[in-house]
Design a protein around this nucleic acid. Structure first.
Lengths: 142, 142
DNA sequence: CCGTATCCGATGAGATACTG
DNA sequence: CAGTATCTCATCGGATACGG
């Protein structure tokens, strides 16, 4: 088992170097973002916050995520203590995922992001359109 | 100019598909995260929030980011209306970056994330250690 | 049903060299 | 100083196939 992202040589540490950054605070933030800041983690946390408990395939359908990414991301979230996993050895087997207290606490800043997202997507969109339009207007010649 | 990520065929749209997700809310959140949710964007916003105005190389040194990623990320942030760029045609040239009002508003949820990050990195760390220890304990045989 | 293993294209990101 | 261009590699992520 190749341990998908366990130990990387200096200069490449899941996401970025930041080796010679002058800003130690940024390094720590970067470190946390490297752990729970990816898209799928955020979306899984949101889903679990909403529904309380979800089974593997329920999450899969809900998010439209591939089995592979769901499996990998859930394992990481469990490892980081944000998500609990409960296995029922029935036939067919059943596995339930839920937020731990740590996961619940993470849910709050995530929600803040989510709210901002909802409110400001239109602003971003119009900024883009304006930028792109102006860029077309003034090429080298013309 | 290959337009680094402008148009991708279905099944691959900067980050993820989410084509058949049952959850439309997740799709929107995913969309926003695809825009301003990457590590460098977040860290640049934090830096500008802290210092107000920064020049290109100042940001570069502060974050320990490569020229390439800084250039790309700043352009996206400017396009999305989060960052303003002011060019002074002096010799040598001088360019100043700062947050726009939209960028300032984004700074708040980002700060919430940052605070949570600072507070909970230790929790994540210990959860990891526990998880890894227990995993070693109970392999197939033993 | 709940995963894991493998294959493969797409994206992220540093290093380096060059221009105005 | 403030970038752009190119090269190279690591990681993300979907598709598929298989096992418990």
């Amino acid at each position: 088992m190749p341990q998908e992202g366990t130990f990387l040589r200096p200069g490449y540490k899941k996401g970025t170097t930041m080796a010679d950054a002058k800003c130690p605070e940024c390094q720590r933030i970067n470190e946390v973002l490297s752990r729970v800041g990816d898209r799928w983690s955020v979306l899984i946390v949101i889903s679990l916050a909403q529904y309380g408990v979800l089974r593997f395939n329920a999450l899969k359908r809900h998010l439209g995520i591939s089995q592979r990414m769901l499996s990998l991301t859930l394992r990481e979230l469990e490892r980081d203590g944000l998500v609990s996993r409960t296995y029922y050895p029935t036939i067919p087997p059943k596995v339930e995922y839920a937020l731990t207290p740590l996961g619940e606490s993470f849910q709050e800043p995530v929600k803040a992001m989510g709210l901002w997202a909802m409110d400001n997507l239109p602003n971003i969109d119009s900024a883009r359109i304006k930028y792109d339009t102006e860029a077309e207007q003034e090429p080298k010649s013309a």
